[in-house]
Design a binder for these strands. Structure first.
Lengths: 143, 143
DNA sequence: GTTTTTGCAAACCATTTGCAGGGTC
DNA sequence: GACCCTGCAAATGGTTTGCAAAAAC
């Protein structure tokens, strides 16, 4: 869904050192088609015998989330997951069947935030929108 | 922000038994002006010496969230909190300074969901929108 | 009297942290 | 060579669970 290089570049561009655990992690993330949890990556890393360790995975995901190369999602279940993405403001629709996700511009939401600001008097600083549904592929397969 | 009775009624209406721990919890929740964590309630419950225990608090919050008497929030920090609310579809603007929150109709969002559906082909089932900012009171106080 | 709820404390699980050795710039 | 990064394993902190006693219906 995302090239491993773009993740490596995120590290690089922000002045982080290029290490083999980070390269390996980039590959693991790039190999994912949908959203994934830290646990998923960890399991995958342990499968191959030279994958990054638990601590590195968590630490790197945090960095990547800060850099915007990855976004943290709050699943309806209360758990956390991540999706690789382009570093621009946007949101995701996540397929609850296969986990695949698609980016969505927040076209319209900006306006809504302004309307809310006017109505409530709050100064709205940030928002998070998460959409969950079924992707086209799963819809047709489900038939 | 919400009357204790409305919470008690939520239990009642759904066929749950009315117990004193549940009444006490309803009062604790009603006393909150903003969002609160399970931990907050637990601390408060322990202050008075006959409050509900840890397990009951978590179990009840889960039930109330299911019933829609309370909504679970995902804070930007990654933690979880709750707000008491009316059981209708809506969203909240949460003040990051004092924790107070206000309900917001999702006026407009419905339309957005449809647009997204059309654009991406996903069938959108649910969404969660959380807004964070500074409430009027804190804005003026902050000057 | 039957069924639900509670409380306690132990179990859990994801995530974080301290620290010494190793790798990168 | 200096400083950043990693792995390990132990600590953490919020949330869940098993079970016997207590309360509601």
């Amino acid at each position: 869904m995302v090239a491993p290089e773009s993740i490596v570049e995120a590290f690089e561009g922000a002045g982080y050192r290029l290490t083999s655990p980070r390269r390996a992690l980039a590959a693991l993330i790039a190999a994912r088609t949908g959203h994934f949890t830290a646990e998923d990556l960890l399991a995958e890393a342990n499968r191959g015998r030279h994958g990054p360790g638990r601590a590195t995975i968590f630490r790197s995901l945090e960095v990547l989330a800060e850099l915007g190369a990855v976004e943290r999602l709050d699943l309806p279940s209360g758990g956390h997951a991540f999706v690789a993405c382009e570093p621009a403001h946007h949101h995701h629709v996540v397929c609850s069947s296969c986990g695949r996700s698609t980016e969505v511009s927040d076209n319209g939401l900006e306006g809504m935030a302004e309307a809310i600001q006017r109505e409530t008097g709050y100064r709205v600083d940030t928002h998070r929108l998460e959409l969950f549904g079924v992707c086209p592929r799963c819809r047709s397969r489900a038939t």
